[in-house]
Design a protein around this nucleic acid. Structure first.
Lengths: 136, 136
DNA sequence: AAATGGGTCATACTTAAGTACCAAAACGCT
DNA sequence: AGCGTTTTGGTACTTAAGTATGACCCATTT
């Protein structure tokens, strides 16, 4: 943050200097106006780069969006998708049942249907496939 | 790419226009020079932002690096880490055994040790934990 | 030479996961 | 009200996963 303040202070000083110079050049006409304009252009060019780097593109640490169309395409129901997310969190069938207030039998049914729809043989593979489809 | 060409073409036209205007203002003195300079500054400011966005920060589509220090910290051996990666790919113990030319017993041993070291109860949880540590 | 750690494999066992099949309640839709 | 789908749950079974324990080989270290 201190660095930002210093940069902006220097920037303001540079701009003031340039504007003074441009006024001087306009009055006395002994300095080429194009050079002044070019200098201002260059300064603002770098200001644009700096602002963009600082404010517009700071975090954005990935975290890709979920492909909801793919979920529909795979014909996953709400419950199946809920179970899939729990599986990806590393929960057992019993734990998922407890988390969703259901019986383990129900979870097994959902998991079985899930594996068919995702064309997976195991829950670990289902997670892998789901990640490749970006649905979790 | 076509969009880039269009943007740059428009940009060059705008700059030519501004420079012509500045020359006109310099000669006839009926346009305030400060306004011209401000216009150029604004244009170059956005040029800076655009250039920065296009060239300096294009890909970076995530794909975070692996935390090898964490692997050492967890005291995972080479074989255990190999098995962990195979688990995360959704392979069964039998499939991992076939892939690494080992017996299923050996894989089970490695998996068991792996779960202890990662403090996981199941292979799915191990994958989850490994991802949170960014070691896979 | 003995201890150590990594890797391999086996047996025996328990628990979890997954399949197949069925059935009923619940819900949305026409 | 009737239809189809979702959701729920059960039984019975097979297969996979995971644990515990012991054993052997091999390379490195003490």
């Amino acid at each position: 943050m201190k660095k930002t303040i210093v940069v902006f202070s220097l920037l303001i000083l540079a701009l003031l200097f340039l504007f003074q110079l441009s006024t001087y050049a306009f009055i006395s006409s002994n300095l080429n106006i194009e050079i002044i304009i070019a200098a201002i252009a260059i300064v603002f060019f770098f200001v644009g780069i700096y602002i963009n780097k600082k404010s517009l593109h700071t975090p954005t640490v990935s975290s890709l969006e979920i492909n909801y169309n793919k979920i529909k395409e795979l014909d996953l129901t709400n419950r199946e998708y809920e179970v899939l997310k729990k599986i990806s969190e590393g929960l057992s069938n019993k734990e998922i049942a407890a988390a969703l207030f259901l019986s383990e039998s129900t979870i097994k049914t959902h998991v079985s249907n899930l594996l068919v729809k995702l064309n997976a043989k195991r829950r670990t593979q289902a997670v892998q496939i789901a990640m490749s489809f970006q649905i979790i």
